[in-house]
């Protein structure tokens, strides 16, 4: 793919002293603005791959390359964690602005960025609250807002909605689609829920094996908003499930 934003090439990761790597020789390209979901069983290495791409854990070998340098006031990647990881000693606003320190932004631009991101995630009214005073779903929106505030070229999401109830999860999924369509960043979304992957993504990749590899990579040929009861949707999820 010539217009890839990120190229993951021949990536291998193994824990020191382990008999075999978690994954070996893995290739994955993500285009500008593309929403890619990564599914697979527990412990297969999805989150590890995400951490490699974010630069949180160095890969054993291989390359992760971004197409060109990131523009000022943005970061290449931002991470949304499964456990929200809000800093309890910072109010919601300060949590959202956490990643802005060090970016070339004036104080006014920083404030404007935080306000805009709070609006995008429908959290404007909660900016002055402490993290302990927001619900689980709201906390997850703050975690998303914190990542969006740095206007990442690639948003990395590690099972972000797995800890909330089904109704909140659906609401968050719809909100994510809306934000993604508006901001147009690429997303790499890790989930073990095939339906969630099919509902959100442009492409679904399946990781399997030990060492793991991407055994299936399929474009989701359905427009948003998608209907979970649609026959095409069911057939797609079934095809992906067969690969797991």
């Amino acid at each position: 793919m010539s217009d890839a934003l990120v190229r993951v090439a021949d990536l291998t990761f193994g824990y020191p002293g382990a008999k075999q790597p978690v994954f070996r020789g893995l290739d994955l390209n993500i285009a500008e603005g593309e929403f890619v979901a990564l599914v697979g069983g527990s412990g297969v290495g999805k989150s590890t791959l995400l951490r490699n791409v974010a630069g949180l854990v160095p890969a054993t070998s291989g390359r992760i390359q971004f197409a060109r340098p990131c523009s000022a006031g943005r970061r290449d990647t931002a991470f949304v964690f499964q456990d929200t990881r809000l800093l309890p000693w910072r109010r919601v606003r300060a949590n959202v602005g956490y990643g802005l320190t060090g970016l070339k932004l004036s104080a006014d631009e920083r404030h404007a960025r935080i306000d805009e991101t709070l609006r995008l995630t429908a959290m404007t009214d909660y900016g002055d609250r402490w993290p302990h005073a927001v619900s689980g779903g709201q906390a997850q929106r703050v975690g998303l807002a914190r990542a969006l505030a740095v206007r990442p070229r690639l948003l990395l999401m590690d099972e972000p909605f797995s800890a909330v109830d089904a109704l909140t999860r659906q609401h968050l999924q719809d909100q994510l689609i809306e934000i993604w369509q508006r901001l147009g960043m690429a997303v790499l979304f890790v989930t073990h829920d095939i339906e969630e992957a099919a509902y959100l993504a442009d492409r679904v990749c399946v990781m399997r094996g030990s060492p793991a590899e991407i055994v299936h990579d399929e474009t989701v040929a359905m427009r948003h908003p998608r209907n979970r009861n649609d026959n095409d949707f069911r057939r797609f999820t079934q095809r992906v499930a067969n690969q797991l």
């Binding site: 974010a54 630069g55 949180l56 970061r75 990647t77 931002a78 991470f79 964690f81 456990d83 990881r85 800093l87 956490y98 990643g99 320190t101 060090g102 970016l103 914190r146 740095v150």
Partner: peptide, 12 residues
């Protein structure tokens, strides 16, 4: 320690 990973992910 998870907060340190967060700091690393967000430029701190």
């Amino acid at each position: 320690p998870r907060y340190y990973e967060l700091a690393q992910a967000f430029g701190h």
